[in-house]
Write a protein that binds this DNA or RNA. Structure first.
Length: 385
DNA sequence: GTGCGTATGTTGGTCTCGTG
DNA sequence: CACGAGACCAACATACGCAC
């Protein structure tokens, strides 16, 4: 590219429009999402509540960032609808010299991780997990500055592709929801008219106590809420087990995290989970092969009906900690259609899962498109000197 | 085993104090 | 005395473990 590098200080000027806080006033407020995902409205600041005595007004088209989160891309252009909104002193704001730089071009430039990283190099803050970025760091960052016409062309191109990506993304989301809805419909058909039987008969509790060897290590298994499956916790050395009882988990177990079962902490132990252990908070149930399949039951506990039953079997009100009662689980009634119908449904689940994997891959490709274009446009050709 | 309180981790934010 | 940077705080999610 036949352009020269220009420091942002030639194009941006740090501005500040301080307003003394009036305790009788309220001040509309904005925040900036990390990863350059734009601004968001925050609840207005109440002049009587806040301890700040100065707030700063921002104007549309200004370039703004969060000093605390610049390292992870909290940069934005103030949109039309946020004109005149207030921010604290943690949000440096700049006027853009629009005769030479399109705000939208700057927006696209700051979509790039590379740029965040380069601007934040040497950022202040050692002991703290965060690193503030000083406005001088931003102003001294040097960018390629093509002509306004060229900037227009680049912005137009990126905006066009971004719109397509958005379209694609929402199409994927729609397909995802549709699959889920179809699956639920199919499930309801599968259980239509099926008898209800207690868990104790359908998938009795199977506990496999572990003898603790002080020299051994015990890899623990966790179950995420909201049906998000299992996860691996670090190994627990035998000496650290203390008096906690551990139970072995086998692939194919239906595992309940009893504290969070009511919000969907139910999963099927996968082959890679086999042999891991869980505390007494993790219940493992094994379906009787001729009666029920584990995936069928897991699905039931992800439906509104199944979750409601888990909720009813989980008393307690210590915040989100609601322990699923053991006896209550054993007597919990689940629908048990003929095993053939369950297998039919499980095949549908497998198909749906495959479709979801394919969509996830497509989604990944789609999401990679913009970063690839940014790379090509902003650092194709000449390397920074 | 159960129910419940509490510890710990994560994230997004403001406060305040030492210092040049 | 303004400002920068760590201290501190709030809200929430997750995990632990005591006492009955």
């Amino acid at each position: 590219m036949p352009t020269t590098k220009v420091p942002l200080s030639d194009l941006l000027s740090l501005v500040s429009d301080p307003c003394r806080v009036d305790p009788r006033g309220t001040y509309p407020n904005l925040g900036i999402y990390s990863f350059a995902r734009g601004v968001f409205g925050k609840p207005p600041i109440d002049g009587a509540q806040t301890s700040a005595n100065t707030l700063y007004r921002v104007r549309r088209g200004q370039f703004i960032y969060s000093r605390l989160f610049a390292f992870e891309g909290a940069y934005a252009i103030v949109p039309e609808e946020m004109d005149g909104v207030f921010v604290s002193n943690e949000y440096p704001t700049f006027d853009v010299d629009q005769d030479h730089l399109l705000p939208r071009y700057l927006y696209w430039l700051f979509q790039r991780r590379d740029v965040w990283r380069q601007v934040a190099v040497g950022a202040k803050g050692m002991g703290d997990r965060r690193q503030r970025v000083h406005p001088d760091k931003v102003l001294s960052y040097r960018i390629d500055l093509p002509s306004l016409g060229e900037q227009h062309r680049i912005v137009e191109k990126l905006d066009r592709v971004a719109a397509l990506v958005d379209e694609r993304r929402s199409a994927i989301e729609v397909a995802e929801r549709e699959t889920q809805a179809l699956l639920l419909k199919a499930f309801q058909r599968a259980i239509h008219g099926a008898p209800l039987r207690p868990m104790a008969e359908v998938a009795p509790l199977v506990r496999r106590p572990v003898e603790i060897d002080l020299d051994a290590a015990y890899p623990e298994l966790g179950v995420r809420s909201f049906g998000r499956g299992t996860f691996h916790k670090p190994e627990l050395p035998g000496v650290e087990v203390g008096n906690k009882k551990l139970f072995r988990i086998c692939a194919g177990d239906l595992v309940f995290n009893i504290v969070f079962a009511w919000e969907g902490a139910v999963a099927v132990a996968q082959p890679e989970d086999d042999g891991r252990v869980g505390s007494h908070r993790f219940l493992t149930c094994v379906p009787a092969p001729e009666t029920a399949t584990v995936e069928f039951l897991r699905f039931y506990f992800s439906t509104p009906e199944g979750l409601q039953k888990l909720g009813e079997a989980s008393p307690g009100g210590a915040g989100r900690n609601r322990t699923l009662g053991l006896k209550k689980l054993e007597s919990l009634q689940v629908p048990v259609p003929p095993i053939g119908r369950q297998h039919w449904f499980d095949r549908l689940q497998t198909k749906a899962h495959e479709a979801r994997t394919i969509r996830a891959n497509t989604a990944q490709d789609v999401e990679a498109l913009i970063p690839a274009m940014l790379h090509e446009i902003f650092d194709g050709g000449a390397k920074a000197a």
